[in-house]
Design a protein around this nucleic acid. Structure first.
Length: 357
DNA sequence: AAAACGGGGAA
DNA sequence: TTCCCAGTTTT
């Protein structure tokens, strides 16, 4: 063992300081009320790349709609996506239901308490696996997320690029050395809570930190320089015309997106890729793709929607059609009331809102 | 190892 | 604007 970074830390004292602080300062959150593996799992999936304040109302509604894993297993996917509407990363919801169905089918409804079975489930990667094992089952497994990497990069002065996939393994190894075997749940949650409340990205509040005396970065005054993270390349912008097409019955055309890729299985208003054709080709393109006539009426506004990896530049147009149906099974005319049952991404929720006034 | 995959909020 | 967030899957 060449790396003796941990020798600088009094592990037992560090555990006590962190766990005691967590017990005293942890936030009251809906998924901390009981040690229920299903609810903890749901919360962990929702919390991936999503802030606590955003998750809370979704979590409460989700548990209300699907109180047990059997309710989720037997639900329709469209209803699960509807409950997830607006949260983003919709594959999380589809993977979660897939995994829960696997738990019912192969594990008698008992969420596996061992790393290999648990980790084999859809959507359960290294983080979620460790979070469930430690928080729901009190096992000393690492649960390393962005918070933990930031906190430990400062405490242990780790200067590797946290944007690199392999760096996460470095932190997992550190956690295996540091984690309390008496209360691994409070240890892991304490690290994350500390990252969320005290050891924040820009201006960490070191004066309030319960493990300040263990922190290498604080000792050297370099806490704001850590962690080191390379920048992502910037998004490409894609121009579209999105159409609010009303037919004679007063119904609007919506369509289901493909079952893989971006916003899989969500619904939307038709979008015409402008980088593949000119504006005046839209009606003929529609005749070819949807088998319906379309007459553009007027522009309703513009919408810019930013994803992590691309940007939609949308020009919204109102249009009319004399058709009542399309040649596509995934597209249909619905009235404003029926529209409410379909899951839309946020960009198209805004267009829907435009229609509803 | 890199890219795909959403959305919101803070600085 | 820029960056960040309780990540996983696919390529």
């Amino acid at each position: 063992m060449k790396d003796n970074t941990l020798l600088h830390i009094d592990i037992s004292q560090f555990q006590d300081d962190l766990i005691n602080w967590y017990q005293e300062n942890k936030r009251d959150l809906p998924w901390r009320v009981e040690q229920n593996p299903y609810k903890i799992w749901v919360s962990e999936v929702m919390l991936q790349q999503t802030k606590v304040d955003t998750v809370i109302p979704y979590f409460n509604k989700f548990i209300d709609d699907f109180p047990t894993l059997y309710d989720l297993a037997s639900a329709k996917e469209q209803d699960v996506l509807k409950a997830w509407e607006g949260l983003g990363y919709y594959s999380r919801a589809r993977n979660l239901q897939n995994a829960i169905r696997e738990v019912v089918a192969s594990y008698g409804g008992e969420i596996p308490a061992n790393p290999s079975d648990l980790g084999s489930l859809k959507g359960v990667g290294p983080y979620t696996k460790g979070a469930i094992l430690s928080i729901a089952y009190d096992q000393p497994e690492p649960a390393v997320d962005g918070n933990v990497m930031r906190v430990l990069s400062r405490i242990l002065k780790v200067e590797e690029d946290i944007a690199k996939p392999r760096t996460k393994k470095v932190f997992e190894n550190h956690v295996r050395e540091l984690i309390s075997h008496v209360d691994p749940s409070s240890f892991n949650q304490g690290l994350m809570e500390l990252g969320a409340i005290v050891c924040t990205p820009k201006n960490p509040m070191c004066m309030l930190c319960p493990v300040q005396q263990h922190c290498q970065a604080f000792a050297e005054g370099i806490e704001k320089q850590l962690p080191i993270k390379s920048k992502a390349k910037k998004q490409k912008s894609l121009p579209y015309v999105a159409l609010l097409i009303k037919n004679k019955e007063g119904n609007y055309l919506i369509e289901k997106r493909p079952e893989t890729g971006l916003l899989a299985n969500l619904w939307q208003f038709p979008m015409v890729p402008l980088n593949e054709m000119g504006f005046n080709q839209i009606p003929s393109w529609f005749e070819k793709e949807y088998g319906i006539d379309v007459a553009l009426k007027r522009e309703a506004g513009k919408l810019k929607h930013v994803f992590s990896h691309l940007i939609w530049d949308l020009e919204i147009h109102e249009a009319t059609s004399i058709s009542s149906q399309t040649c596509l099974s995934n597209a249909r005319f619905v009235n404003k009331n029926e529209m409410e049952a379909f899951p839309f991404p946020v960009s198209h929720q805004k267009m829907k809102q435009f229609l509803l006034g």
